[in-house]
Write a protein that binds this DNA or RNA. Structure first.
Length: 500
RNA sequence: GGCGACGUGGCCAAGUGGUAAGGCAGGGGCCUGCAAAGCCCUCAUCCCCGGUUCGAAUCCGGGCGUCGCCUCCA
């Protein structure tokens, strides 16, 4: 059985069959660039990053399109508040968005169209809709007439007549129906504007995604994603626009992610209970953030808290430890224990590798069940730790190929989830270790790396002499600088402890 | 009021008909100079009440509770 995807449009899981065999066209609604993105936004982009990575892992050639909405009411509002051009605001936060995505390890889209660079196509779609009598113009504004599109409401399961539209918003009496939405907005003085058959104006938000997706992927593309708060009205409106304009089905599979919550309440910019991604990443590794989020299924709500991030950081260490251990052991095999593993034990680890891989794939095939997939990886981590602890590299390093196989499998599958084993950056050692080395190890140079080497050597010597006080002074001193020292059978190891 | 989702151990969370993955935390043990890491053991009958079935966390009905959408929102 292949990949199954929960399709919001049909409310059930469906076998995934792309439009074109072997390739996938997917579109995910991107940000409106008027502020830094918060971690709720990040969760959605992360979810679809994993979808994209997994589809590629399964051999599909994925065209991944994500727009940048760089002209919008909120951008204009912000620009007015700050007394600078809207284009400047948009440019600033576009860059910030791209930087934030990169720091979370989200792969860049194949194409990232900007609304302001797609204006002619937007005007063209509005014109098509007017010609087909799905849209009408009033005083330079153009509205989509929801009642002219009989399928309106099919994605969100709503009936126009049962919605008490306008009950909480002022009804614009120029609209034929309160639910009619703007395709094109006449520009007010000082706003960004483009020349159109209806006068100077700018595109409506919903229009942008219909146009940019069609331009890059054509009609009836495979996957359209976004968070569940976009189902209505945004995605409903996209369907109406695109299907009315083209007469073809818009999208094959609609995927919607669950919302991030804080204290059981939705995190949103309007509620003000948000945390910016860039701030969270100051304190937590991207991989830990990814692990935290991926331990919950993408469609479920996820309650966010520092406690959960702390837990995720601990479990991140757990899952990458065997990878580090295997590297250390296979790089310095002479120092490792050399117990020969019997065929039975070797086969057991081999079987664990195979079953982890199989389970990972079957969990991910089932609507991208990252939580289940991670479960499989934790099990492989334990099997690897057990083997490593019991046999090491084996006599004549005979266990090395098998251990590498286990470590590589873990690393490869974690990589599909975008979780990487962070290499300790060389620059991580602060200059203060030099002083520490001078005090405790008699080191006289200025190089931080060598200072650390000197400290570890001094500690090893002290331990040989059973001078525990001197040995512990080194460990405690490094500990205060944020590094922990762990003794392994291949000698002491120093790791940066991000908790400090 | 309409539409929808959800309710699994101390916390988080997979599992959607055949007898409860995994992570975090806790308890006991091994290893260690001490630690850390790791390993082993231990820790639930799935919100409540009915029903269907040989058998249900898993299906149906009814409660109770939480959340989301119906307005810009990832």
């Amino acid at each position: 059985m292949g990949i199954r995807i929960y399709n919001t449009a049909t409310r059930r899981k469906e076998e995934f069959e792309p439009r074109d065999e072997g390739s996938v066209s997917m579109y995910v609604c991107g940000p409106t660039v008027y502020n830094h993105i918060h971690i709720g936004n990040a969760r959605t982009f992360l979810s679809f990053d994993v979808v994209r990575r997994y589809l590629e892992y399964r051999g599909f050639d994925v065209s991944f399109v994500q727009n940048i909405t760089d002209v919008d009411d909120k951008i204009i509002k912000r620009a007015n508040e700050e007394g600078r051009p809207a284009t400047e605001v948009a440019a600033e936060y576009t860059t910030a968005f791209q930087d934030a995505m990169a720091s979370l390890g989200v792969a860049p889209p194949t194409v990232a169209p900007k609304a302001t660079e797609t204006i002619p196509e937007m005007i063209s779609m509005v014109r098509r809709l007017i010609e087909r009598e799905y849209a009408y113009e009033v005083d330079g504004d153009v509205y989509f007439s929801v009642r002219s599109f009989s399928d309106y409401g099919k994605l969100s399961g709503r009936d126009i007549d049962e919605m008490n539209a306008g009950s909480r918003v002022d009804v614009d009496d120029r609209k034929r129906d309160p639910l009619d939405f703007a395709l094109w907005k006449a520009a007010k003085p000082g706003e960004p504007h483009w020349t159109s058959p209806w006068g100077e104006g700018r595109p409506g938000w919903h229009l942008e995604c219909s146009v940019m997706s069609e331009k890059e992927l054509g009609v009836t593309f495979d996957i359209h994603g976004g968070a569940s708060d976009l189902i209505f009205p945004h995605h409903e409106n996209e369907i109406a626009q695109s299907e009315a304009a083209t007469g073809e089905p818009f999208v094959r599979y609609w995927m919607h992610g669950g919302l991030l919550q804080v204290n059981k309440e939705k995190m949103s910019k309007s509620l003000g209970n948000f945390m910016l991604l860039k701030d969270v990443l100051k304190d937590y590794d991207a991989s830990a953030v990814r692990l935290m989020m991926l331990q919950t299924h993408y469609r479920s709500p996820l309650d966010f808290s520092d406690d959960r991030l702390d837990e995720a950081r601990t479990s991140y260490e757990r899952i990458i430890t065997p990878i580090r251990e295997v590297r250390a052991a296979t790089e310095q095999p002479a120092l490792r224990r050399d117990v020969q593993a019997g065929a039975e034990d070797r086969n057991e680890l081999l079987a664990a590798i195979e079953s982890a891989r199989e389970r990972f794939i079957s969990e991910m095939d089932d609507d991208f069940n990252t939580a289940g997939a991670l479960g499989a990886l934790f099990e492989l981590a334990r099997a690897t730790n057990r083997f490593l602890g019991e046999f090491g590299v084996g006599e004549g390093e005979s266990n090395v190929p098998l251990l590498r196989q286990a470590g590589n499998a873990l690393e490869e599958l974690l990589g599909v989830l975008g979780i990487t084993v962070a290499e300790r950056p060389r620059s991580a050692y602060p200059q203060t270790v030099v002083a520490l080395a001078r005090d405790l190890a008699g080191y006289e140079g200025e190089d931080v790396e060598r200072a650390v080497d000197a400290l570890l050597a001094a500690r090893a010597a002290a331990r040989t002499e059973k001078n525990w006080a001197a040995a512990d002074a080194v460990r405690d001193g490094l500990g205060e600088l944020g590094f922990s020292v762990e003794d392994t059978s291949s000698g002491a190891r120093i790791i940066y402890d991000s908790r400090i």
